[in-house]
Measured scan of single mutants.
Amino acid sequence: NQASVVANQLIPINVALTLVMMRSEVVTPVGIPAEDIPRLVSMQVNRAVPLGTTLMPDMVKGYA
């Protein structure tokens, strides 16, 4: 099963993503693939993302 990107903490809106904010985990439904974590660094989410939430492509500005 493919690992997805999961919030490692509350990720506020309009804050640049850092490695420490994200972890990889096998979850259902599948979200952004874990291998895209380096690409996500410095991008921003378009809504607050609670701890443990799977990041979906539509949550990250400029990802999709």
Rank of each mutant, 00 (worst) to 15 (best):
V41E: 05
Q2S: 13
N14L: 06
P29H: 05
L10H: 15
V45G: 00
V5A: 10
L40S: 00
D58P: 06
V60K: 01
I37P: 01
A16M: 15
Q2K: 07
M56Q: 12
D58W: 14
P29T: 05
L55D: 01
V41K: 05
M22G: 00
L55F: 14
T18N: 05
Q44R: 15
L19G: 05
L55N: 01
D36E: 12
I37W: 03
L40G: 00
A64C: 15
G31L: 02
Q44E: 13
L19R: 12
T28K: 06
P57V: 05
L19P: 08
Y63D: 03
V30Q: 15
R23D: 04
S4P: 01
S4Y: 03
P33W: 07
A34S: 13
I32W: 02
A7E: 01
A7W: 03
P12L: 05
S42A: 11
M22C: 03
A64R: 08
P12Q: 09
I11N: 00
N1D: 15
A64L: 12
G52W: 04
P38G: 11
G31Q: 02
V6E: 01
I11C: 03
D58T: 08
Y63N: 04
E35I: 10
D58M: 12
M21Q: 04
M43W: 07
I32H: 01
R47D: 06
S24P: 10
G52K: 04
A64Q: 14
V20F: 15
M43F: 12
E35H: 10
V30H: 12
M22I: 10
A48W: 11
E35P: 07
L51M: 15
V49N: 02
L40C: 04
T54M: 03
G31C: 03
V15R: 13
L17D: 00
V27L: 05
T53C: 10
M22F: 11
L51E: 13
V15N: 08
Q9I: 09
S4D: 01
V60F: 06
P50Q: 09
M56L: 11
S42M: 12
P50S: 08
V49E: 01
E35W: 08
G52L: 03
L17C: 03
V41I: 14
S4L: 01
D58R: 07
R47C: 07
T28E: 15
N8K: 08
R39F: 11
E25D: 14
Q2Y: 15
V45T: 13
V20M: 15
V26W: 13
E35M: 09
I32K: 00
P38K: 11
M59W: 11
I37S: 04
R47V: 12
P29L: 05
S4F: 03
G62L: 09
R39P: 01
A7L: 03
A16G: 13
L51R: 11
N14W: 10
K61F: 09
N8Y: 03
L55A: 02
A16E: 09
A3W: 10
K61S: 14
L40P: 00
D36H: 15
L40R: 00
V45W: 02
R39K: 15
L55K: 02
A7C: 04
Q2L: 14
N46K: 11
V15G: 09
T53V: 14
A34W: 06
E25I: 06
V20S: 15
R23L: 04
D58K: 09
K61N: 12
I32D: 01
V20Y: 15
K61R: 14
A48Q: 13
L19I: 08
T18Q: 11
P57L: 04
G62I: 04
N1K: 06
N1Y: 15
N14Y: 07
K61E: 09
I37G: 04
A64W: 05
P12C: 06
V45H: 00
P12H: 08
P57M: 06
P38V: 11
I11W: 02
S4I: 02
M21Y: 05
P33T: 06
N14T: 06
Q2I: 13
T54E: 01
L10G: 11
I13R: 09
V45C: 06
E25W: 08
V15A: 13
A48I: 13
V6Y: 02
V60H: 02
L55R: 01
V30R: 06
V49S: 02
M43T: 04
N1R: 04
N1G: 15
L55S: 01
M22S: 00
S24L: 05
G62A: 12
V27H: 03
G62K: 09
L55Y: 01
V41H: 04
P38A: 12
G52M: 04
R23E: 04
P29E: 07
R39H: 08
D58Q: 14
L51W: 14
T28G: 07
L19N: 05
R47K: 13
L40N: 00
V49I: 12
G62T: 05
M59G: 03
L17Y: 01
L40Q: 00
L55I: 14
M59R: 03
V5E: 00
A3K: 08
R47F: 07
M59S: 05
V45M: 10
A3D: 07
D36V: 08
V49G: 01
Q2R: 06
T54S: 04
Y63T: 03
N14S: 09
Q2T: 14
N1F: 13
R23N: 05
A34H: 12
V49H: 02
V5S: 03
R23H: 04
A64D: 09
N1W: 09
T18V: 05
A48R: 13
M43S: 06
N8D: 11
G52R: 04
V5H: 02
V6D: 01
I37M: 14
R47Y: 10
V60T: 01
V6A: 02
V15S: 12
T18D: 05
L10M: 15
V27T: 12
D36K: 11
R23W: 03
P38Q: 11
N1L: 15
V6P: 01
V6C: 05
T54Y: 03
N8L: 05
D58N: 11
M43R: 08
Q44T: 15
T53K: 07
K61L: 10
A3R: 07
S42E: 08
P50G: 07
L40I: 14
S42P: 00
N8R: 09
Q2H: 13
A34R: 05
A16R: 11
Q2C: 15
A64E: 09
A3Y: 13
Q9K: 13
V6T: 06
Q2V: 10
L10N: 13
V45K: 00
S24R: 11
T18H: 05
K61H: 14
G62H: 10
Y63R: 03
P33N: 08
T54C: 06
V20N: 15
P50E: 11
R23V: 05
M56P: 02
A16H: 10
D36Y: 12
T54Q: 03
L51D: 10
N46Y: 12
M22R: 00
P29G: 03
I11R: 02
A34L: 03
V60W: 02
S42T: 11
